[in-house]
């Protein structure tokens, strides 16, 4: 994870920031000192606001990532293994996945109205693509030799899927899950900023409108921590789920 040496830079940076602001060298109307941010964080935690916002955002992110895993996995599997499906769907997939999900935010807002449901739809939509593309690619590139092996051992279709194709695709699917988690977080926070007063995104926007920079920074910091923890958790899950798999290490490292 993070080495001790790696903590030096942020600590030094925060220290310098504190010194520069409190000695008056840095003078901006809306730049709080780290100590003020810390006080805000404590106040937000004590009032329960932060916990509520965090729970709101996290619930949507986790739910969206899970949906994206199921949806992207199923679609990717179909596209990778059934040539007619690939022929008909791949062009649409390539177009749709390149639309920035935040560009669809106003569309979704008008279509589905503001609320957690719309956040979930948008986050799932955006998060499914890396899972889909990874899965489809992995299914299509299962070594031809393994299909020969399945045939010469006369494995049934379901047996082949279960013992050869699924395990061969699993690492790529899980590598997609990591990216999906991060994308779901990003889209959820943006969606909350635009449409709901809830969640971390809502907290950020309200603090900005209330001209309370310390509180705003506290929310931003929380978003960063959520991202880091989410990434580390997913990475760990992949590692535990697939011990010693070189495929896993290569692909997880690359994304």
């Amino acid at each position: 994870m993070v080495s001790r040496a790696g903590l030096l830079v942020p600590l030094a940076f925060t220290g310098a920031w504190q010194v520069l602001v409190s000695t008056g060298v840095l003078r901006y109307d809306y730049l709080p000192a780290p100590v003020d941010v810390g006080e805000s964080l404590v106040a937000l935690t004590a009032s329960g606001e932060l916990a509520a916002d965090l729970a709101h955002t996290l619930a949507i992110v986790v739910f969206a990532a899970a949906l994206a895993l199921a949806l992207g996995g199923a679609l990717g599997f179909a596209i990778g293994s059934l040539p007619p499906v690939r022929v008909h769907l791949m062009a649409s997939v390539d177009f749709l996945r390149t639309i920035p999900a935040v560009a669809l935010l106003p569309v979704a807002l008008l279509q589905f109205g503001p609320g957690p449901g719309t956040e979930l739809i948008l986050a799932t939509w955006a998060a499914q693509w890396p899972v889909l593309v990874n899965t489809a690619g992995a299914v299509a590139t299962v070594p031809a030799r393994l299909h020969d092996v399945a045939r010469t051992l006369r494995l049934t279709r379901t047996k082949k899927l279960r013992t050869i194709v699924f395990p061969a695709v699993l690492p790529a699917w899980l590598a997609g899950a990591r990216v999906a988690g991060m994308i779901a977080l990003l889209v959820t926070v943006v969606a909350e900023m635009i449409m709901t007063p809830e969640g971390l995104g809502g907290g950020l926007i309200q603090s900005m409108q209330a001209l309370d920079p310390a509180r705003m920074w506290a929310y931003a910091l929380t978003c960063g921590v959520v991202g880091a923890v989410l990434n580390a958790t997913l990475r760990r899950a992949v590692r535990i789920g697939l011990p010693g798999s070189a495929v896993n290490l290569d692909q997880a490292g690359a994304t």
Binding site: P143, R145, L146, D148, V149, T163, I164, P167, L242, S245, A246, V247
Partner: peptide, 11 residues
């Protein structure tokens, strides 16, 4: 098959 690397299931 000749290519045992591809013909065995590494997992």
């Amino acid at each position: 098959f000749q290519d045992y690397d591809n013909a065995l299931l590494p997992w």
